[in-house]
């Protein structure tokens, strides 16, 4: 409404002084949340650039062991495979939650969302177990450039998963309180994109960091 009056006055001023207008005067209204999906996608793409920089840093520094432990000494591939399984399972269970959401069935949706959160928590638990194990062996981020870049890259991904789980708990509470409103559905779809995006980043991590590291 404000834009309409401002626009009208601008149009009057323009006609009175015959001055050219160099901006869009008729701001049309968007439906609420109409551009959220695209906006969130743009956020994910910018997040992608953050990870690209961290991957590049790891690619450059990944071979600088400073006479310290190398990936071969540290990485436990069966554990990484288990971790990958957890994240992959959480992706498909989130998919099931979205399917229930489309059918407007609240309880099954909440159940699948909770299962997704548990798989996410299992992933985090295994990752923290791996990190503590490494740190107790003396492979701390301070030990070498390889370990600094490793902990930064994998830790940033873990931090994203942590925030994803917090978001998931928030949405479980939201849906329980207000039901599957349009706004909540929109939020669930945004978290869906976020969660699947984290899985995509993890593909890069286990290929580039763990598998290539052991291969090196």
């Amino acid at each position: 409404m404000a834009s309409v009056t401002a626009d009208a006055s601008a149009a009057e001023a323009g006609s009175a002084n015959e001055q050219p207008v160099f901006y869009v005067t008729d701001e049309h209204e968007h439906a609420e949340g109409g551009s959220t999906q695209l906006g969130f996608w743009l956020y994910l793409m910018s997040d992608c650039l953050v990870f690209a920089v961290l991957f590049a840093t790891y690619g450059v520094l990944g071979g600088s062991f400073a006479a310290g432990p190398s990936p071969k000494d540290l990485f436990d591939l069966p554990l990484v495979a288990l971790n990958t399984t957890m994240l992959l399972l959480s992706s498909i269970t989130y998919g099931f939650a979205v399917l229930e959401m489309q059918k407007n069935r609240v309880s099954p949706m909440l159940l699948w969302l909770a299962i997704t959160g548990l798989f996410g928590a299992a992933f985090l638990g295994i990752e923290l177990f791996e990190f503590t194990h490494m740190i107790l062996e003396g492979a701390t981020p301070k030990r070498s450039a390889f370990l600094s870049s490793f902990f930064t890259l994998v830790g940033t991904h873990g931090l994203h998963v942590t925030f994803g789980i917090i978001w998931m708990i928030t949405l479980i509470v939201q849906v329980r309180m207000f039901g599957l409103t349009d706004a909540n559905k929109r939020r669930l779809l945004c978290l869906s994109m976020f969660w699947h995006f984290l899985d995509v980043v993890w593909i890069g991590v286990f290929t580039f960091v763990y598998l290539m590291g052991v291969l090196r």
């Binding site: 439906a31 999906q37 695209l38 591939l77 495979a81 990958t84 498909i92 998919g95 399917l99 489309q102």
Partner: peptide, 29 residues
């Protein structure tokens, strides 16, 4: 196409993606 609504997900689509990613994860490991 702003107001084209949410993309519609299907069970078949998710399962296809899941099976493919399990295979594509298992092979490199």
């Amino acid at each position: 196409g702003h107001g084209d609504g949410h993309p519609v997900s299907t069970f078949k689509g998710y399962m296809t993606g899941f099976v493919l990613s399990v295979i594509l994860t298992a092979i490199p490991f």
